[in-house]
Amino acid sequence: MPKPVPTQQLINNLLRGDRLALARAISRVEDDAEEAARIVKAVFAHTGRAHLIGITGAPGTGKSTLVSALVESYRARGETVGVLAVDPTSPFSGGALLGDRVRMTRHSGDAGVFIRSMATRRGTGGLAKASADALLLLDAAGFDCVLVETVGAGQAEIEIARVADTVVVVEAPGLGDEVQAIKAGLLEIADIFAVNKADRKGAARTVAALEMMLETGGAAVRTVLHHGQRMEAGATASITEDEDGWSIPVLETIAVSGGGAAQLRDALERHRTWLDESGARVARESRRLNHMLQTLVQAEILARMEQALSPGLHREMVEKMQQRETDPYSAAADLVRKL
């Protein structure tokens, strides 16, 4: 096998917009924590320019098709687009079948588009651990906007809200009633709702349910994401508005024919302008960087802890628990004291 390209050369080429270098850098960031650190250190100063857009929603709502329609819409304006499409890793085999490209083949041959599939590996919350780093690389490579498609999300896969500037939650008719619409989680992170497959029966009802949810107090829930802890929501906030005056639109799309994609792109651009003018972009970035920092510090502490504690000690504690000589809480406290 040929010698791998030295990291520094890879970084230089990536910053010049070389696509193979970008592809290889993403792999290294996925495969190797030390390489990830080296690469991110070198490119970080070149990030912060792209509009990072998260597309999330339940399986089968048409996320990939909608991403493809959006790419087309951005390209029609001459903007370049990077796509990160995340699919789940099998917890049994460790393998993954990444099939999002099937819906995006029409952008083949377009040098203004770069599509990368990513398996979640050990990541949770609908993204891979390397997703945030991969976004930095796509940003540094110079794409005007970067679309991240999460795995088919349930109600709690909200990690995307920590990495994107703007989150689009994709719904489809017939997935649930008004009660589903007021449950916690996924619906609370939307900056924009897209009701896809809007030509199907029940679309109007889904739109109505979402609008009802927004009117009856979906406001200011954003703050919940701060450090993952609940912060007091501003009681004076207008009930149809998010923090500082963003009113969450509910749009209809028919991704398969491109219907509504231009309106969705317009809404995304309005949100981007709002982010800049209201100062929310700065606040969100600060939240994002704080989260990245916390994650990295935790990983480092975990690694040091695993070095410091012998596996024998762990086994000993487990045996004591099995004999009922100690309990999980006391055992954990004992182990931490030994650090």
Partner: peptide
């Protein structure tokens, strides 16, 4: 996939360029 590889499936009617 079941053997633990990450498989990217692109679908039918692909040109060599694609």
């Amino acid at each position: 996939r079941d053997a633990g590889f990450e498989v990217i499936y692109t679908g039918i009617r692909q040109t060599p360029q694609m």
